[in-house]
């Protein structure tokens, strides 16, 4: 795990170049280019607002207005799941690079994580504007706690990176990992309090525990606390995030390190 970290640090210039290339390549030949990165969150926000404030109004204690509650956790989740899914295919998709050239393979899943992080960073100002608008309109949302978001993202990064690294190396040997992961993520999405506030399932004790122990939950709670409620997350939440991040990174980078020598042969 230290070697992975060292390699990433050593080739940080290359990582930056590859990430910006990845982003450019995604919008190459499109007229709006980077604006599409803004269009997607805007559209999601508009749809959620329309559906949940006009079509039907869910009664969720502590999650009003609902659309703002959802988006404050949703974009972070999108970052995690896209990074994990795209990351799991990153080595296979670039097998030419690692089979036929001397190339630091750990950069490939990292490129996926970072380019998707850029999309999250694009979405953040939109969420912020929406919350400020909500506040101006008299809703009790947002606050100074939003300043904690960069720190949360920074702490979230090793977790997502560990996930992508481990998944990428495992997928090389075992293609089922990707499908396994896709289904697992769908399942976990509902086990994470994104569409509902954690408090709303307090009466279902076993389910509450399941959700609370889900490693993705502390991060989502922290995003919601900082963005939606506008408070700094509790110290225990920070501790939980740090722990999950450390374990995820150690596990993912460890698996990658373990499989490194065999990647060239099997990719």
């Amino acid at each position: 795990m230290f070697r992975v970290a060292f390699q990433i640090f050593r080739f940080r210039g290359l990582l930056a170049t590859l990430t910006s290339r990845e982003l450019k390549a995604r919008y190459r030949g499109s007229v709006l280019g980077f604006l599409w990165s803004l269009a997607n969150p805007l559209l999601l926000l508009a749809v959620y607002t329309f559906v949940f404030s006009v079509v039907f109004k869910p009664r969720a204690e502590g999650a009003e207005p609902y659309a703002l509650f959802v988006v404050s956790g949703l974009f972070a989740w999108i970052w995690v799941s896209t990074s994990a899914l795209e990351g799991s295919m990153s080595l296979i998709a670039n097998s030419g690079l690692i089979r036929k050239a001397v190339f630091p393979a750990e950069l490939l899943p990292m490129v996926t994580v970072l380019s998707n992080l850029v999309h999250l960073l694009f979405a953040m100002p939109i969420v912020a504007v929406a919350i400020v608008t909500g506040r101006v309109l008299g809703e009790k949302v947002g606050g100074i706690g939003a300043l904690a978001v960069p720190a949360i993202i920074l702490l979230h990064l090793p977790m997502v990176a560990g996930l992508a690294l481990g998944a990428s190396a495992l997928t090389v040997h075992f293609k089922d990992v990707r499908d396994l992961l896709a289904n697992l993520l769908t399942f976990l999405f509902f086990l994470t309090p994104i569409l509902y506030p954690l408090a709303s399932i307090a009466h279902l004790r076993p389910v509450w525990w399941l959700v609370r122990l889900n490693p993705f939950t502390p991060f989502i709670l922290a995003y919601q606390e900082a963005l939606f409620v506008g408070r700094f997350p509790e110290p225990t939440l920070w501790l939980q995030m740090a722990l999950v991040s450390l374990v995820s990174w150690a596990l993912g980078a460890g698996i990658f390190e373990r499989l490194r020598e065999t990647l060239v042969e099997a990719a």
């Binding site: 080739f11 210039g13 290359l14 170049t17 590859l18 290339r21 450019k24 390549a25 190459r28 030419g96 690079l97 089979r99 036929k100 050239a101 001397v102 190339f103 630091p104």
Partner: peptide, 21 residues
């Protein structure tokens, strides 16, 4: 052509290739 990204320019590839080396 190993280590080259087909979609991007020769110039960028020189930088990427050089960085890999």
């Amino acid at each position: 052509g190993a280590g080259f990204h087909p979609e991007i320019s020769g110039r960028e590839n020189v930088y990427i290739n050089g960085a890999v080396l």
